[in-house]
Design a binder for these strands. Structure first.
Length: 400
DNA sequence: AACGGAGTCAACCGCCGCACC
DNA sequence: GGGTGCGGCGGTTGACTCCGT
């Protein structure tokens, strides 16, 4: 526990790396590979600890690193991924080839947070600041403590949360938000479900948190309940729905493996009565695979070559300061959100949730349930909403 | 030119989970 | 089961640069 043993050793250099040190490390790893990092400094003739060498290699010397400023597309992608993953920089970095988690973290803290705030978007919740303030005021005083922690920073995700006590293998990629986000979500959820199909018990989950996407007037969310089910919350208004497309990149991160899908349009449908689509990827070892491999998962099992675009609410009523800002924000909201850099990857689904489902998708609905027959070529929620479903939930397989 | 605040970024710190003994 | 070593991660720090006054 605590510091790495090598850090206790004396006479180890700290601070910035000299060009000579870089050269030594680069030479050594190029010739021998890093192997055991703790032995690298000694073998490479460096007065550094192994961790320091590892960090230097990963963040600076690695040959596949992309240099230079982040492109607009990369920034957009980071924002979208952050909305789903929170401060999971390594997973975000896995979706941005050549970029390091450190780099992305720095960009977020120094630049993107500010940009979002300038656009009246709360960088922690990705909701409009006005709404965050409103929800903050609506919370009972007893919740203020949690609210303070979570609204202040996503970094405190799951603090005091029962999920924290679970082993990582039992936690899911979606646990990115905070208890206050949960509160906010519940508030939103209650406001948008006007029939009996939505029960708070469906979404109040002590083990999992969820994220609520809210761009302008678009309200959609993802939740998880104690039964290990995740729920996709549709946009709250029909106009939202018409303008919303869920990014499959979000789904990449949420459903890395062994996913079951179910519809909850009818509250009488019990989980065991719902037909499930289930990935044939039952290899438990994949349950913890990183973002990059989850992409492969979709490629391999769902036929999704790469991801779709996010096109959330073109009419987002985000307060804008100038026309130029308006334009930029509009561009952001409408920028195709594409995973991967290669042109051949930039072609996939970008269909409206309400759009027609092509027969060949294999996404089948009936009166009581919605299921995918493996392997659908693309992730489509359209049919779910065309049947006016209030909720669309995704249940993880128990082998996760 | 000098100063100070803001922004950027590389590196460190502390913790966690896993593997091994 | 407990201790230890190690890799990995996210948060934080501090040096440096930029820019306005």
């Amino acid at each position: 526990m605590g510091r790495h043993s090598c850090c206790y050793k004396q006479k180890l250099r700290k601070g910035l790396w000299s060009p000579e040190e870089d050269e030594k490390l680069l030479d050594y790893i190029t010739k021998h590979g890093h192997g055991c990092w703790s032995s690298v400094p000694k073998l490479a003739g460096l007065q550094r600890c192994g961790k320091s060498c590892r960090l230097r290699w990963i963040n600076y010397l690695r040959p596949d690193l992309k240099r230079g400023a982040f492109s607009q597309e990369e920034e957009n992608m980071i924002i979208e991924l952050h909305a789903v993953l929170g401060n999971r920089w390594s997973q975000i970095a896995a979706q941005l080839p050549g970029r390091t988690d450190n780099e992305i973290k720095n960009l977020w803290n120094s630049c993107l947070k500010k940009k979002l705030r300038q656009r009246s978007i709360d960088p922690n919740t990705h909701k409009p600041l006005s709404e965050v303030e409103k929800d903050k005021d609506m919370l009972p005083s007893t919740d203020k403590t949690n609210q303070k922690a979570s609204l202040g920073s996503n970094e405190v995700s799951l603090v005091d949360h029962p999920a924290k006590a679970l082993p990582s293998s039992e936690r899911y990629p979606l646990e990115v938000s905070t208890s206050s986000t949960q509160e906010l979500f519940l508030d939103r959820f209650g406001a948008t479900c006007h029939d009996n199909s939505c029960r708070p018990s469906d979404v109040v989950g002590p083990y999992f948190s969820f994220h609520h996407f809210n761009y302008g007037t678009t309200n959609m969310g993802l939740s998880a309940n104690p039964n290990a089910s995740l729920s996709f919350i549709p946009p709250s208004t029909s106009s939202d729905v018409n303008n919303s497309t869920i990014s499959s990149s979000m789904l990449h991160s949420i459903f890395p493996t062994h996913v079951k899908l179910q519809s909850n349009d009818n509250p009488s449908i019990s989980s065991d009565a719902v037909q499930n689509w289930e990935s044939n990827n039952t290899n438990k070892s994949n349950a913890s695979m990183q973002f990059q491999s989850s992409t492969n998962f979709l490629e391999n099992t769902w036929g999704v070559a790469e991801s779709a675009k996010v096109n959330i609410n073109k009419d987002a009523q985000v307060p804008l300061q100038t026309e130029q800002e308006d334009l930029k924000w509009s561009e952001y909201l409408n920028t195709p959100f594409i995973l991967g850099n290669t042109p051949e990857n930039q072609i996939q689904t970008s269909q409206s949730i309400y759009s027609e489902v092509k027969p060949e998708t294999g996404f089948i609905t009936d009166e009581s349930c919605t299921s995918w027959h493996h392997p659908p070529p693309a992730f489509q929620l359209s049919d779910v909403y065309s049947k006016n479903l209030q909720r669309f939930s995704v249940t993880f397989g128990q082998t996760l």
